[in-house]
Design a protein around this nucleic acid. Structure first.
Lengths: 152, 152
DNA sequence: ATCGTAAAGTAAACCAGGTTGTCCATCTAG
DNA sequence: CTAGATGGACAACCTGGTTTACTTTACGAT
């Protein structure tokens, strides 16, 4: 295969990194959360009052699907649902301590995965790569992509 | 958000590029094929006699799923199934002229998408980015990832 | 004050794209 | 020439989502 398409390489590299992450998590005997769970953590960690509807918008799925994801995370002890402070219809989603611990642990694993890559090409080139990709993503999302969510 | 995770950027960029492709295809009024169909085309275009089982291995799905994909493509006129030249149990998959036309058309669209990116950061930096990603993908697949298929 | 519409949540039916399990026909090694 | 392996087809099922429909609460305009 000559000059693989960069879109293909993006997908393969993403796959390889997340496989690495899941491998480490499996070795530690942790539940395998799906990417959608990870993005939920990031969103909730930003702070503020978050409802299922808002989570769905962020994830790019229906509110029903978002509710289901939040319910799973609640069952596993990562998320709590409290009454919403100002809106009697809504429930406010938040991370438990267990959720916060998980997110910081996974952050460390991402660091490791990036370090493996940096070991191959050097940290400077990796940083340039990050910026090159970020430039395209910003361009594409500015251009009014209706919703720019990752593929999963 | 500080320094987004590169894994996240990879997913977003891949999503943005494929969205762009689908947008163009939709504007041309073509059927929206899924990524799995595209990878099937690439595989069949390599030439040689290909069976459903082999297609499944390449795509990283069961032979039943591969058969279903091939059946769709046959129904739409992109693929033919002929008797296998040497094995009476098997059917040989191949591209029709319509399939070949489709693949070369899509290749042109990928060129356009890459050109948009190159316009942002320059063709040299894009080439460096491609190489940086390719290096990681090769490393990861050499390291014995059981099967390195893209995420879809 | 209250009425009408919008919005959050929940539930149920459905759908797409995969899986596993089973079976038959054919191939191939011994 | 027989026994096990393999390609393919069919069916049942699973998962993660969607759509549709309904209840309850919020809230702006009259």
């Amino acid at each position: 295969m000559n000059e693989p398409r960069i879109a293909f390489l993006l997908a393969m590299a993403h796959r390889a990194m997340t496989d690495r992450l899941h491998q480490w998590l499996a070795e530690e005997g942790r539940e395998a959360l799906r990417p959608a769970h990870g993005y939920t953590f990031r969103f909730l960690a930003e702070g503020g009052v978050v409802t299922s509807v808002e989570l769905g918008q962020r994830l790019g799925v229906s509110k029903q699907a978002a509710t289901k994801i939040a319910a799973e995370l609640e069952e596993w002890g990562y998320v709590v649902r409290r009454p919403h402070p100002t809106d009697g219809r809504a429930r406010a989603l938040g991370l438990t301590q267990r959720g916060l611990d998980y997110i910081s642990h996974v952050d460390g694993l991402w660091d490791e995965a990036e370090a493996e890559w940096a070991a191959l090409i050097g940290p400077e080139r990796l940083e340039e790569t990050r910026e090159a990709i970020a430039a395209y993503v910003e361009h594409a999302s500015a251009k009014g992509a209706p919703l720019l969510r990752p593929v999963w």
